[in-house]
Design a protein around this nucleic acid. Structure first.
Lengths: 152, 152
DNA sequence: TCTACAGTCTACAGTAACTATAGAGGCAAG
DNA sequence: CTTGCCTCTATAGTTACTGTAGACTGTAGA
């Protein structure tokens, strides 16, 4: 049981093979043992660790925070405060985003219901996008706030 | 009135100088006129266009969508449908994110209230992150869904 | 045993949407 | 005329991956 290939680990955790190698390269994962021919071999500990990382990423923790959390995990016996602090920071982050997104949802909804199949020349969506003075940002706050929406 | 430098345009729109040059490089902005010494000179149209772009970015539209919107804007007189479609797609995107974030908020809150200053060894935040089977994803859906949170 | 074929290896380039830096030259005020 | 900020180009860095090329490995069927 102490040896699965990278593909199995990938299947077990839902993290892509390339991503696992990437995590190793940035030292989120320890270098695993290798078979005679050089293939990576993982045990149960790696499944644990990778699951931890993945879950934290799903929760939106940046890699830097995960690194901190892991280092705390590795050496238990001290106060929980720092962990708590990191989680709180993340919660604040999530809440900021929620607020932003709620505003966006409202504005998009408004735009769409106003646009009911006319010509582009009079399209309210484009008009709304053009008139940018009255929404979301007062001065020029929150510029990069939503800059990272992938929406592939 | 038909000539402001890139710095003024930046001030007028809240978009950084480097970002303006970047937008030009990816053809979101037309190449502006230049002064004798080669400095970019912008008019009112550029302020309009850049405001449009910025607002759309703030709303989370990816650059590719903005490019579409601009091309529609440039040639009005056809149906609004495509614009509407783009906006709807974006709204769907925003809603997906909202749902995700709400789940995250709940989980983080749960984690934090459970962690009240013990030792790391028994910290519930770390425990919650470790036990990843019961939340958010059933099989291995939504993997990259939140992968792009910057949280600088 | 031979032969496919899927899985693994390294190394590097590409993605999105910028941001930052270096090093050189421009422009207005004192 | 010099100080100091602005602008220029070109290039590299950021985050968290993803994709590709080209070679090797491991395994299951004929």
């Amino acid at each position: 049981m102490g040896s699965m290939t990278i593909g199995k680990l990938s299947g077990a955790t839902g993290v892509k093979v390339t991503t696992i190698r990437y995590y190793e390269s940035i030292d989120l994962l320890d270098e695993p043992e290798r078979s005679a021919s050089g293939q990576r071999l993982y045990g149960a500990a790696a499944v644990e660790r990778l699951g931890f990382i993945r879950h934290a990423r799903d929760l939106g923790f940046p890699v830097s925070a995960i690194r901190e959390l892991i280092s705390l995990q590795v050496d238990p016996g001290r106060d929980c405060d720092l962990v708590d602090q990191i989680a709180r920071r993340q919660l604040g982050e999530v809440r900021r985003r929620l607020t932003q997104l709620e505003a966006l949802e409202a504005e998009l909804k408004r735009m769409i219901t106003a646009c009911e199949g006319g010509k582009v020349a009079s399209c309210s969506v484009l008009a709304a996008l053009g008139h940018h003075e009255h929404c979301l940002h007062e001065e020029h706050a929150g510029k990069e706030v939503l800059a990272a929406l992938p929406s592939k």
